[in-house]
Design a protein around this nucleic acid. Structure first.
Length: 324
DNA sequence: TAGCCGTGGTT
DNA sequence: TAACCAAGGCT
């Protein structure tokens, strides 16, 4: 025994206190979300994780309910068309996530007997499942003791432990190691801990106006102790107006609004082509919005080509539509 | 790795 | 009001 080197010192001798404070707060303050229901299926958890990638909870809720109602099991979605998945995705944004979720459902159906796999590596191999989502499903659907590092947890760690206003732009190995050291050893407690820190970051330790007065660990927070210094680096800024992304979204909105193929010139041609086309009211409204952007034909064509390239749209004899 | 991929609420 | 931000993944 004496030859065994002493273990590295714990991050903080008060770690159990931290665990108690945060999970205790969570027990009282947690939002009642359907995918946190103990009866929620792994598939329900998985769908929620896909939808929550870069999309706020309040916008996910109604779409998630309708999705699970329509496709209660992976095989149900796998049997549907990708176009139906994209349409059901609605306006959640990043519609390629709908394609990836569909592809994942196909793979689960064909290679996992229709059941969401429980293993982290098998999850990670699914389309649209990265390090975060694999860990999240393993933890929240199967009770695994896995390290979850999302934007909320990164921010809480940056403030409470590192004393910085915001984490760096990209995830570092040090952050993952820190998350591992902070995680409780007990499996069940680790699940709650992950959920609780995430929730704390989502509703209290927010990016712009943190509600420190509501924070269960404000007295142990390094950032508060340092006087809440400003962020080290300026935010990147997400450009939108006039971008290809904006046009791409507007083109897809036209396709999503109706079932009938849209003649290609209506999307990419001169603006006046769009008038009196016999389109249903909804697609016509979306088409007006597209043309209201006043984007060059070249840009609209580029957007459409990109959508087709990505499998979000198909070119048929009668025009452009969502896939099959 | 940095840039790209939607959409709408908040500040 | 323009900018920022949101339970990321992929190339």
């Amino acid at each position: 025994m004496s030859s065994v080197p002493a273990p590295a010192p714990a991050v903080d001798p008060g770690l159990p206190d931290l665990h108690r404070a945060v999970t205790g707060w969570y027990d009282v303050a947690a939002r009642d979300l359907p995918w946190r229901d103990p009866d929620c299926s792994p598939w329900g958890v998985m769908v929620s994780e896909f939808m929550l990638q870069q999309t706020p909870v309040v916008r996910v809720l109604p779409v998630w309910r309708a999705w699970l109602q329509r496709w209660p099991h992976p095989a149900d979605l796998a049997a549907a068309s990708t176009g139906d998945a994209v349409r059901a995705w609605g306006r959640l944004g990043y519609p390629r996530r709908a394609l990836r979720l569909h592809a994942a459902a196909v793979e689960i159906t064909e290679r996992h007997g229709g059941r969401v796999p429980a293993g982290h590596d098998e999850l990670l191999a699914l389309p649209g499942v990265g390090a975060y989502t694999a860990a999240a499903i393993a933890v929240f659907a199967f009770g695994d003791r896995q390290v979850v590092v999302d934007t909320n947890i990164r921010r809480v760690q940056a403030r409470v432990v590192s004393g910085r206003a915001l984490p760096s732009r990209s995830l570092t190995a040090a952050e993952t190691r820190l998350a591992e050291r902070l995680m409780p050893e007990d499996d069940a407690l680790a699940v709650r801990w992950n959920q609780a820190v995430m929730e704390l970051g989502a509703v209290v330790c927010t990016a712009r106006s943190p509600r420190c007065e509501q924070c269960p660990v404000r007295h142990a927070c390094a950032w508060v102790a340092a006087g809440r210094p400003e962020p080290a680096e300026a935010p990147r800024g997400q450009s939108w107006h006039g971008t290809d992304r904006q046009v791409r979204g507007a083109v897809l909105a036209v396709l999503r609004a109706g079932r009938d193929p849209v003649p290609e010139p209506h999307l990419t041609g001169p603006v006046d082509v769009a008038t009196g086309t016999g389109l249903a009211p909804e697609p016509l409204r979306a088409l007006d919005a597209l043309h209201g952007l006043d984007a060059p034909q070249e840009q609209r064509r580029r957007a459409l080509d990109g959508l087709i390239q990505d499998g979000l749209a198909v070119r048929g004899p009668a025009g452009i539509s969502l896939p099959g």
